[in-house]
Design a protein around this nucleic acid. Structure first.
Lengths: 339, 339
DNA sequence: TTGAAAGCGGTACCAT
DNA sequence: ATGGTACCGCTTTCAA
């Protein structure tokens, strides 16, 4: 590997001169700088970040902790993060645990600490609390996505869960549905709870006398399918389901189909997240609430950079938009129709 | 951040002692070591990898270059890589380009070089050749996944593309299909070409007198759908399609459905890759050739470690297995039926 | 404008 | 068994 010193010797200047040429900093005679730059190019010199970090105390590395890479949802968020990281010359250390155990997460934290990441962008993961002590102890900034747990500080970006849930209910109502149920998730997280709150509020607003059915499933299509199967058997009057996630929505669709219900004529479904898997259904592409994933990522990284530069970023709650596909009926009324 | 020196002062030993305690190396009195270890724990000391790298010339960082994170296929491979990286205490630098431009890739290479990655695991990406010069010039080992382009060296792991394609054709044949067509991809890559070779060989073997229809689409569902629509219009006799990828398979299914064909009665389809999106179709989960993605990742990383330790790993061609789901008819004959 | 030199946090060699 | 110390590649202060 060619070093600063090598370049300096070759050009016949001091190490310092080369350093400043690389970083576009300090005062340097234009001609000297020119000579150095061409030498750098010729010799294929690349500054050693590790060495740099040692003296500047900044690794230019951002840890991104995510539950699983194979969920396209997070991949899109990461893509957004990447976009602004790229501009600002930061490198991402993408970390996701092998299993669910909190030991796995501790391992990831250890790795991030050893690499001296400048900050951490935290997607919602289980056993979040275990990690808090790591990040607190070394005092590196954390930006939370979707969650905002106090022990990680106050910087977060998320979607308007409650309001979006309301919009979904309104859409269902306008399309003629009245017996609207919800499938929520049992592993309680704040964002899911918010969606449920929004659902209940909207139901109360539109139909004060009706008490909606709400059931809970574990995350994933299979369990949602099981739960919705039971739900429809017990409450055959249900004509629409608002699902706390697209997984739940897809599970609901599967259950309904198995029971011979037509979608959307007999049962309408709206999911949440707009996962690829929901969009790409050949036969029943799912109506859903779209989270602006890349935008979320971009904003999170921008907030990170603000923090790193000593500024105080402001946490954001983004609007989510309804995407009506095949699992909802066309909306009548005056309002504009399906998307 | 607490340093070696801090720990040494606190315990009252030399820096060297602490270093050896951390690395479980060198000779040390058991009691000294014990004292040091507890101090390390109490003080929350984490060795600075950057500093380590400077002297050991090993970053313990492996660059993983991948076309897109949001394709679950690569996520699964990465998961496999992760598993063995974890064991061997390597950290992954996951890199994927923002766009398709080769400038993007150069940027990623620059980042990897600056971080002094010990090696690169290379998934099949466009403009692969541009990258070769980077990796050659610094002479770091490269393990290729799926491809094996000579300019990157001779270490690769891939699936038996040609043989697997043959198996798919046999399965189609045994289920009673005779007019079997193929949808290939136009952006020529060696793996796709192999699948096509396998397809043609099997067809020639089973039905020497029939010249199968082969058409090409761009990667992605929409274009496959367009191409297959045309194909079925021009050749209505076609009763089965072998697709070079699940995207093509899904596009084929969509086109067939639009033309009023029943699946699998009128048209059978087998894809390739076993993507999540193909498995999770509510109504037409796709029959496909499963690539053992995690296994591929694990093997790639193992090969990487072998290289890094001066051993010469042997490149591998793994078997892929047929997964028959809803888009193929039950196989008659003596052989065992659907999975 | 430019060069010399200190020091960042480690490792490893050489004494003791 | 343990301590002292040179040095890895780089930034940055200080003098010239």
């Amino acid at each position: 590997m060619v070093t600063l010193k090598d370049v300096a010797q070759r050009v016949g200047v001091s190490i310092r001169a080369v350093s400043h040429a690389v970083n576009h900093t300090g005062r340097l005679a234009p001609e000297t700088r020119e000579k150095i730059l061409t030498a750098i190019h010729e010799m294929g010199y690349y500054p050693n970040q590790g060495a740099r970090e040692l003296v500047t105390r900044r690794s230019k590395l951002i840890g991104v902790l995510t539950p699983s890479l194979s969920i396209s949802f997070y991949a899109r968020i990461i893509s957004g993060i990447q976009q602004v990281a790229h501009q600002e010359n930061y490198t991402l250390l993408l970390m996701s645990p092998l299993g669910e155990k909190s030991a796995d997460y501790q391992f990831l934290c250890t790795q991030m600490l050893q690499r001296r990441v400048d900050g951490i962008i935290l997607n919602p993961i289980p056993s979040v609390r275990d990690i808090a002590k790591f990040t607190r102890s070394c005092g590196i900034p954390v930006i939370q996505i979707q969650n905002h747990i106090d022990s990680f500080g106050s910087d977060y970006v998320q979607v308007a869960n409650s309001e979006s849930a309301k919009e979904a209910v309104y859409a269902l109502y306008r399309s003629g549905c009245r017996k609207i149920a919800m499938v929520s998730h049992s592993r309680v997280s704040e964002e899911i709870a918010d969606r449920k709150r929004g659902f209940l509020a909207a139901m109360k607003e539109m139909m004060p006398d009706y008490t909606p059915v709400v059931m809970e499933s574990r995350v994933g299509i299979p369990d949602a399918r099981r739960v919705v199967g039971k739900m429809l058997a017990e409450h055959p009057e249900i004509d629409a389901i608002f699902a706390a996630s697209d997984y739940a929505g897809l599970g609901a669709a599967q259950a309904a189909l198995e029971l011979g219900r037509r979608i959307p004529e007999d049962l309408s479904i709206i999911g949440f997240d707009n996962l690829e898997i929901a969009a790409q259904q050949l036969v029943y592409p799912l109506s859903t609430v779209d989270q602006p994933k890349e935008e979320i990522g971009r904003i999170a990284m921008k907030m990170m950079i603000d923090r790193l530069n000593g500024r105080r970023p402001i946490s954001q709650v983004l609007p989510a938009s309804l995407i009506l596909r095949s699992t909802t009926k066309a909306i009548k009324k005056k309002k504009r129709g399906r998307k």
